[in-house]
Structure formats: structure tokens, C-alpha cells
């Protein structure tokens, strides 16, 4: 039975039995995997710093013959995101990012760039707080990194061939998650309208770094359109609503504020 060690981020941990936990990790060298952490709720020695939401550390794992679930023998937290619990917005964005990775990353498929993207996002979240624009940049980067990135600049179907020679800004587009994003009027068979401002904003955000995204400030209606457009793409790939999105909606209802 092979032992392995990898930098990892805790995507989810659920209690199991008397004192165990089943942990979903995104390992830099292993991809997403689930492991049984025996005695995790009692032992502060093997799981120093805890196995909390988005904890970053080095995981020591052991594969079990014939078992899909690995054994987590130890988790050494290398740096806690201590500010994630400092406000609900930070926690909600961290949980959303973790849930997205958990749902979109294939099991045991090494995705170093995705791991680094999530680690960078969490570090910025910890340092500077929650920002809707940065969350959009994270979504776009994650989708792109996993090969699910939506077509934004050109039609997902014809890549611009059906309106060649025409001014691209004069072409009407629709948004169709089933067909991969923006679809020109000539190719559209369904979907819904997307404003030129939302498409331009998505295109702009797709080119931004996570650091630069914090300085962006989209108009509320453009932010809403971008959020809804990306949510359609994400739901298409995930196949159902995310719990963390429901949580964010509950928070918005409680505070009557805008959704992140």
C-alpha cells in the first residue's frame, strides 16, 4: 500500500462515526481525492491546525488496497487562512470556491494550475476580503483551467465565420450554456439574450489576474448579468445547484443586500 505526501487544500470535511472525518482534498500532486481521517475530531497531533474549510497544508496519505477512500495519516497546516472566519462574505466565497473545485475537478486528476489558482484566490480572500469581481475572475480562471471555459469573444458555434466581414460589435449574441457560451444570432437556436456590456465585462475579467480583480468595480446590473451567465455554465457542468450558492442567497435575503 503506497504512501504519499502532497501539499493540499481541504475542500470539505464531514464527521463520520464517533471521532473520524471524511475529508475531500485538492492535492497539488494528486488532484481531488477523499480520505478517511481516523480520530480526526480528537487528535490535534496528527491533524495539527485542524481540517477546517480551506485549510492549507501537507497531507500524508496512504492508499488502501481495493478501497476508493484513502487514509489520511496526517495533515500539517502550513498556513491558516485566519481571516476567512472574520466575516461571512469571506467564508461564503471560500466555501463556494471549494465546492466548485470539489464538483468540477475529476477525481485523482492532477491539476497543478487549478490547485495554484485556488491557493492564490484563498490567499487574496484572506488578505483583502470578498469581492464579486474577483469571484468572477476565479470562476473564469477555474472553468478555463479545466477546459470548461465559455466562449465569450467569438461565437461558440461558428467562431465568427457566419458573420465574417461584419463589425463584431454590431452582431447580436445570445448566451447558451448548452452550446458553450456566447452564440451569434446566426447560429442561435435557444439560450437567452446577453447584453454587450456583460459580454465585454466577461471578456475583460477573463484577462485579469486575481490581484488586479480587486480594483475592478462593475456596475451592479453588469455584475448580476455576468454572475448569472457564469452560473448557467457552472450549473451545466455541475448538474445541479450548489449548496454554497443557496447559502449566499439566504444571506442576501437576511441582509437584503446585493448578492456577491
Amino acid at each position: 500500500m503506497a504512501s504519499l505526501s502532497t501539499p493540499a487544500i481541504v475542500l470539505r470535511a464531514v464527521n463520520y462515526g464517533e471521532a473520524d472525518r471524511i475529508v475531500t482534498l485538492l492535492g497539488r500532486d494528486t488532484g481531488r481525492l477523499s480520505a478517511l481521517a481516523r480520530g480526526a475530531r480528537k487528535s490535534q497531533k496528527r491533524f495539527a491546525g485542524g481540517l477546517g474549510l480551506c485549510a492549507v497544508g501537507v497531507a500524508s496519505l496512504r492508499e488502501r488496497a481495493g478501497a476508493e477512500l484513502l487514509t489520511l495519516e496526517g495533515f500539517d497546516a502550513t498556513g491558516g487562512h485566519s481571516a476567512l472566519g472574520a466575516d461571512i462574505g469571506r467564508m461564503a466565497h471560500a466555501a463556494y470556491a471549494a465546492e466548485l473545485c470539489s464538483k468540477l475537478c475529476a477525481p485523482r486528476q492532477v491539476e497543478v494550475a487549478v490547485y495554484d489558482w485556488l491557493a492564490e484566490f484563498l490567499a487574496y480572500l484572506d488578505l483583502e476580503g470578498a469581492s464579486a469581481e474577483r469571484l468572477r475572475v476565479f470562476e473564469l480562471g477555474l472553468l478555463g483551467g479545466l477546459g470548461f471555459g465559455p466562449a465569450i469573444a467569438a461565437c461558440a458555434v461558428c467562431a465568427g465565420a457566419s458573420h465574417a466581414g461584419r463589425d463584431a460589435s454590431a452582431v447580436a449574441f445570445r448566451w447558451d450554456a448548452d452550446r458553450g457560451g456566447a452564440v451569434c444570432a446566426g447560429c442561435a437556436r435557444g439560450g437567452r439574450p446577453i447584453t454587450a456590456a456583460a459580454r465585454a465585462a466577461l471578456l475583460h475579467l477573463a484577462g485579469l489576474s486575481l490581484g488586479a480583480a480587486f480594483r475592478e468595480a462593475l456596475a451592479p446590473d453588469v455584475n448580476r448579468d455576468c454572475r448569472e451567465a457564469l452560473a448557467e455554465i457552472i450549473n451545466h457542468h455541475v448538474g445541479g445547484p450548489l449548496k454554497s450558492v443557496e447559502f449566499i442567497a439566504k444571506l442576501s435575503a437576511a441582509s437584503s443586500g446585493g448578492r456577491p
Binding site: A92, A98, F247, K250, A253, A254
Partner: peptide
């Protein structure tokens, strides 16, 4: 406690 991944919000 508030828990996004379990869908537990303030009203719960």
C-alpha cells in the same frame, strides 16, 4: 453554526 457547504444560513 453558519455553514455554506451544508446550506445552513442565519434563519436556520
Amino acid at each position: 453554526v453558519l455553514s455554506p457547504l451544508d446550506g445552513v444560513g442565519p434563519d436556520d
